[in-house]
Design a protein around this nucleic acid. Structure first.
Lengths: 307, 307
DNA sequence: GTGAAAGCGCTAACAT
DNA sequence: ATGTTAGCGCTTTCAC
């Protein structure tokens, strides 16, 4: 509990001088320096991070909103963010949202209260209008393509790779494709359906679309409803792999299954996949959060057949 | 940038009264309350979290040291920690260590500087003596069994499940078992070798022990050196699965492979596994961190054959 | 019910 | 080189 003023009193120097020596910025004679450092060591002094932040006017915290931690998509983005934060000395605070709007707003409120210097949404549920309103309190960066051009973002440009995947599925004679998605309404779903339409020149029928797939278990549970399809476009390799597993166990002929994120589970089964380069997305999102640059950048997804 | 004193000036009340109303603790007449709340709203006032923490004397931050994020073991512990933190309003700060001692010490220093209220080591490289030294600065909780009884910890009691696994391997006539571990010297490795010895009544030979297995890729790379074994005891299902994959691709007869953590990859291949209930470990570790109770608790691991 | 004042611990502009 | 002073923004004790 020894504070800077304790040292000041004991050494006889002023708080300012002590601060200079201890923080390392500012002049101080060799002798002074030694005196102060010596008694600081004796008293086991440690500078108080909170007070420092208050004086500085900001924390070096960055909040990262994650709907789920288990999902490979989010955890890979997080990896990227951590890599960068680490190099720059920022602290990363995990904000689990479970796609709960109230929670997301709570986190935005914390940004407003300066609990974080910036906030990164790996995904979100709150309307973009809400995001816009909170922008004045600090940088808010999204990890998907916003509808609004005034919001900083880094995202995977999925369309070309998705098209490639559908073209390949078409070549394989797949005529009835099922889509496995996480949320009912997400930016990704429209991308998926658009790419499908571009290639097949058909609107997807509602019964082709299955949503609510988060964990691998969800996939296994849903699999029995997929027997009608000759092709499956899944939102992750883990989902894809678990569908595969159900068919395998039932001894049924398998549809062609395409996964995403280039994960081990897909690799084991040699499933085609789409790598959305999420780590890179995370790294870039972090940079935007600290640079405060209001721009939108994208990373190209990649369709991978041979593994 | 409006502060509490701005509100005080504008309304004519003192800072104390304003603080009472805004923070919700303390008396204030209905009228006063309304006045203050009204101008606060008009000025878009938000209480400054840093100042609050300084006055309060502590952050509500808990640091979590993670060697890697990708490893299922650590990310499952993290999940558990997040679940709990979430219920209690603490903020979780991720501290990537890569098993680097200097880094770990840096994090302990931050505890000393009160950047966190407590710190959880999901694993560590620094000697326990160092941990002991830093205990006076705040709770430090470990997620493995410490040698020293004075350090709070929650860990998986692996021995019984490990023994079961080795007994089963013995029943399967495995006589030459390879161990796939992450670090050369870790508490887990001695547990593993001890359980092996208990069952086989033999010391493991050095050539049975392979360490440095972190990612699934490491496993794939190492696999060619494992052809001599008729049984493999791996540190995770992902490692186990990738060994399986290599053998499969080579068309070689496979050893019996036991994994850990009950992951999808292992489930797909129906590999036996050991569930160390890491999420539960995380939850309990968090509780210890906030309760400041200096005790050691354990969670039983579970050998799972049928999946 | 409200206010004055001291305090949390550090920083930084300015003066000497 | 060192000290003075005034913050940073909020909380809390103790009077009135």
């Amino acid at each position: 509990m020894t504070s800077l003023s304790d040292i000041a009193k004991l050494t006889g120097y002023s708080k300012a001088t002590v601060s200079r020596v201890l923080s390392g910025n500012g002049y101080a004679s060799q002798q002074t320096r030694e005196d102060i450092l010596k008694t600081a060591a004796e008293l086991d002094y440690a500078t108080n991070a909170i007070a420092q932040e208050l004086a500085y006017g900001a924390t070096h915290n960055i909040g990262v909103v994650l709907p789920y931690i288990k999902s490979p998509f989010f955890s890979k983005i997080l990896e990227g963010i951590l890599e960068k934060s680490f190099e720059t000395g920022y602290k990363i605070i995990i904000l689990p949202s479970n796609y709960n709007q109230d929670l997301e707003i709570e986190y935005l409120e914390k940004l407003r209260k300066k609990a974080f210097e910036a906030i990164i949404f790996t995904s979100r549920q709150v309307p973009e209008e809400t995001i816009l309103k909170y922008q004045k309190y600090g940088p808010i960066v999204l990890c998907y393509k916003p509808e609004h051009s005034g919001i900083p973002a880094t995202y995977a440009n999925r369309i070309p790779a998705y098209r490639e995947a559908f073209e390949w599925l078409k070549e394989q004679q797949c005529s009835n494709i099922g889509f496995l998605l996480s949320r009912g309404k997400s930016p990704t779903i429209s991308t998926t359906l658009q790419a499908y339409k571009d290639v097949y020149h058909l609107e997807a029928r509602p019964e082709q679309i299955k949503s609510g797939l988060i964990s691998a278990e969800d996939a296994y549970r849903l699999a029995p409803q997929l027997t009608q399809f000759d092709g499956i476009f899944a939102n992750s390799d883990e989902i894809a792999a678990n569908v595969w597993r159900w068919f395998e166990e039932q001894g049924l002929p398998k549809p062609i299954i395409v996964g995403q994120e280039r994960l081990l589970a897909g690799q084991l089964l040699k499933l085609p996949t789409i790598d959305n380069h999420c780590r890179q997305v995370g790294r870039m999102a972090f940079e935007q959060a600290v640079s405060k640059a209001n721009k939108q950048t994208s990373v190209h997804s990649e369709f991978i057949l041979e593994r």
